[in-house]
Design a protein around this nucleic acid. Structure first.
Lengths: 229, 229
DNA sequence: ATAATAGTGTCTATGAGACAGTATAGC
DNA sequence: GCTATACTGTCTCATAGACACTATTAT
């Protein structure tokens, strides 16, 4: 008796045969920070083929006994030395030919870290890690390897959107911050200036005062705040 | 005589083990539709261990030579018989123990299909596919296998959010639809009634009239519209 | 005419945006 | 007092929400 195989059955046969050729899974990291009034991203300069001398996102392969989040934490630790920073999943990229060496599906994660935390770890790095302006990066996408240019664009867009309706920007300032400082972060991410009074009204319910003030500047000092709760 | 294993032997053991233990990648499908004034989801009743007799999301493994999107299209075709429906990536789930058989990372995709398109394909299905109310499903999460209950909640939340700021609800009605019909879709997804006049103002710039009207009802007929562009 | 649903006009409260004003430090 | 930046008050306009009203079909 001839039985028609379902597509799934046929697929599983093929799948079994190609077991040795299975898909690799990686996490790609988009570590953002703000430096010199610019949004910057942690990238590496590749010193191997493929895409030798191109820029690329740092990333690690996901181990069989490792969750995606564990892989992300490990990757962040390896590339920056910092721990316990904010991150969130962005998108999963699965085109067949996105890596010429082999089939790699990559789950991208965006991490935000205040420059101060990153600075503490400067010099610890082994491989060639750079902080580059996101605007400049996206102006010369031909220097970015793999599909990472597209991923960076996606992340920047997500960051812009999320700044508007979430508290994500607070991840880019120290625990205590001034409002002009925070406003600068918003403006840099959004790419346009904001009105002081409106900005303060908008975030007023998210913050609470401290009794500390800036000092040493030839103008009125500004008060330090912290995130509420 | 006890013989130490050669390096070659050890390597082969390790290689073999890793070969077998690599990560598998699947796509899980959340096919939503609206039936009888309820938001419904396509689920399957499992007839195998693990989670035999539990409900679960349909899904397929991603082939080595297949993109994520190709896998999704294949899965949707296999489970519903329909083609060319809207879908978008939701989230990627990567806990180590989420499937007791083996390490599977699953990329979840949400698909929306008007009931009319689904109806055309009813009876084509092989395995046991059900259309179940999302509310009822989430009230009895203990009957849902794997981490799929969590995934369904995530998807429902995303759908709710996205209805508010996108044109996603139009994917659940036929190409030509009446405004009361569309409003009903919005209300079902959001879970609360809307004011007619406000609803119409809000979507007025997304739609354009046709010259067709409903007929045969004992009340004023309603006009058919279509999505602009 | 009535019942039932389709469709519209408009008042109000809320919030975003724009701008002008006041406050306080170092020099 | 001057300069530079911090901080605040308030007007306007667009929009979301609430509600009352009119319109059109079959019976």
């Amino acid at each position: 008796m001839v039985k028609n195989k379902s597509e799934e059955e046929l697929f599983l046969e093929k799948y079994d045969k190609e077991k040795y050729e299975k898909i690799s899974v990686a996490v790609d990291l988009l570590v953002f920070t703000v430096e010199n009034d610019e949004l910057k991203l942690l990238v590496i300069k590749r010193n191997e083929m493929p895409y030798k001398d191109y820029l690329a996102l740092p990333g690690v392969f996901v181990g069989v006994d490792e969750s995606l989040e564990e892989a992300v934490k490990r990757g962040i630790r390896e590339e920056t030395g910092v721990e316990n920073i904010y991150f969130e999943q962005l998108y999963t990229w699965g085109e067949v030919d996105r890596d010429p060496r082999m089939r790699i599906i990559s789950v991208s994660y965006m991490a935000l870290v205040p420059l101060e935390s990153l600075r503490m770890r400067v010099g610890m790095r082994v491989s060639e890690v750079l902080l580059m302006s996101v605007d400049e990066l996206l102006e010369q996408k031909d220097k970015i390897g793999f599909d990472h240019g597209k991923i960076i664009e996606y992340a920047r867009e997500r960051l812009r959107n999320k700044v508007e309706y979430s508290k994500i920007a607070f991840e880019l300032v120290p625990k205590e911050f001034t409002l002009p400082q925070l406003q600068r972060i918003y403006e840099i991410i959004l790419g346009h200036p904001l009105y002081k009074a409106n900005f303060r009204k908008k975030i007023s319910e998210m913050i609470c005062q401290t009794d500390r003030y800036t000092s040493g500047n030839a103008h009125r000092p500004s008060q330090y705040y912290r995130l509420k709760e």
